[in-house]
Amino acid sequence: MLVLDHVGHVYSAGTPWAHRALQDVDVRFDDGSRIVVVGPNGSGKSTLAWILAGLLVPSEGKVTLDDGPLSIEESHTAMAFQHARLQLLRPTVGEDVRFGLDIDDTAVDTALADVGLDPARFRTRRIDELSGGEQRRVALAGVLARRPRVLVLDEPLAGLDAPSRESLVQVLGRLPAGLTTVVVTHDTEDADRIADRGLVLGDSRIVADGPVAEVLRTAVTP
């Protein structure tokens, strides 16, 4: 279980630019749960995403996974960023999925198949030849290949055309069963297809938490 125990964060604390991004976030995520986090700009969504991914230490409270510290080094977490191109660190799809891992071609093919990409067509394709939607799926294959326990997705559907969006929604709907998935987004259109629980952030706090359809009905997102 992933636990955020009264987590808060202040950026640039002790400087003239200090500002609070998150306050008193106290939530628990069961293993395998699918959560969508929505809220207006500046509500603390990205900060929460970085904390959940283990990239940012909260200035208040603590984050634990099964009562232990959340660790990037042990690949507890993975994060898919909005700008997929920044995540692709090798020239070809196969090399990128394999990056940082000791896995064979079969594992690469499995990871590609998991995100709906035909391994025979894509394994040797160059990254720069891919469309935006394909780049996003390759980035997702790369993080899934690490077999994380917590996956954080930052605006996974932003800027995609309808077919790319639909195929990515389908991929997100069939992620591995035990994987805790947190989707941070402005886009609530397909939220009920990729998550079962919704969190609404406002003024750096959680203002609603519950079943995704119910929560999003009341959420105010610009």
């Binding site: 990239l55 977490t77 993975a78 960023f81 700008h83 660190l89």
Partner: peptide, 14 residues
């Protein structure tokens, strides 16, 4: 963007 790049590197090759 450099912050994101560094984060990606940390997550994918910790």
């Amino acid at each position: 963007e450099l912050r994101t790049l560094y984060a990606v590197r940390r997550l994918r090759h910790p």
